[in-house]
């Protein structure tokens, strides 16, 4: 499981952020060719993002590019420029149906093949920014093996729901829960939308605690100052770490003895629990990332 507690958006036409963003140590960076780039700057941003991808070492960050929507004339050019540059994945906006993902999958496969990139290497994160996208979340998440995460939208989703932002984001409770349910059913990561008030640290902490509790694995980020707060919330407690260590140790000992079953504190634990314990240690920085 890749750590995706924080995925930091970097505006695609802003050299300062593109080059320095990863230094704030998010789990991932999203080089953005979509909403943060003016229509007249699309070509310039695409070239800049390509050059940054080719020349900057992003350290341990997962590197994804948010392309323009499949209903625009830009998305294919976006893919052609960025896929050969060694990225981990594509973040695609406004996905509404599994057909969108089939179309994208096919285009990515073609570019992978042309550039001698192993087929299936490029992952897809889907942004579900309409009611239809949320409704189809499970089918979208299972439309291709490339899909590794799905995220609910924020402002676009509110607009499609014919509502507006409230202080508690009550209007997004249902969609967020649907995304979590669909993602876990499809065995992909549910990642939350951004918290747009970059001065409200308390609000960000409150929202992050809530989304973690309902099952999200991380959150998109629009300002570096938000990263430590989200990491803090997603970092396991001492009690969780101690329990996870016990489980991982017990699983190791059972494997060494050739035993299939693992017992901790007199209770049997199965494989998913061991996996979860390893993930807990990984989130605490005590174990290297796995798959």
């Amino acid at each position: 499981m890749a750590l995706r507690r924080t995925m930091l958006y970097l505006p695609g036409n802003n050299p300062n952020m593109l080059i320095r963003g990863h230094l704030f140590k998010p789990d991932g960076v999203i080089l953005d060719l979509e909403d943060s780039v003016a229509l007249s700057e699309k070509d310039a941003a695409r070239i800049l993002v390509r050059e940054v991808l080719k020349n900057i070492d992003f350290g341990g960050c997962e590197v994804t590019v948010r392309i323009n929507g499949l209903d625009t004339p830009f998305w294919k050019k976006d893919l052609e420029e960025v896929i050969p540059c060694g990225i981990d994945g594509i973040r695609v906006p406004k996905v509404e149906t599994p057909k969108d993902i089939e179309l994208l999958d096919e285009a990515i496969s073609e570019i992978e093949s042309k550039n001698n990139i192993p087929e299936g290497k490029i992952q897809i994160t889907c942004l579900l920014e309409t009611a239809l996208g949320i409704w189809n979340a499970y089918h979208i998440a299972t439309a291709s093996k490339r899909v590794t995460a799905i995220c609910p939208g924020g402002e676009d989703l509110r607009a499609d729901l014919k509502t507006s932002r409230s202080e508690t984001s009550e209007e997004l409770v249902g969609p967020r829960r649907m995304v979590v349910l669909a993602a876990h059913a499809a065995k992909v990561d549910p990642l939350d939308t951004v918290f747009s008030d970059i001065t409200d640290d308390e609000g960000l902490r409150r929202e992050t605690e809530w989304i973690k509790q309902i099952g999200f694995q991380g959150k998109s980020v629009i300002h570096p100052n938000q990263i430590p707060i989200i990491h803090d919330v997603f970092t396991p407690t001492e009690k969780e770490i101690a329990q996870a260590k016990k489980i991982v140790q017990a699983a190791k000992e059972a494997a060494e003895k050739g035993l299939g079953a693992v017992s901790v504190d007199g209770k049997m634990v199965d494989k998913p629990v061991v996996k979860r314990a390893e993930y807990t240690l990984q989130k605490a920085g005590l174990l290297e990332g796995g798959e």
Partner: peptide, 22 residues
């Protein structure tokens, strides 16, 4: 203060726009 990466990208983008897209 653009570094080589940025400078190259900006020159390419301006030149491409001048000759009519990419």
């Amino acid at each position: 203060g653009a570094n080589d990466i940025v400078l190259k990208a900006r020159v390419e983008a301006a030149a491409k726009a001048l000759i009519g897209g990419d």
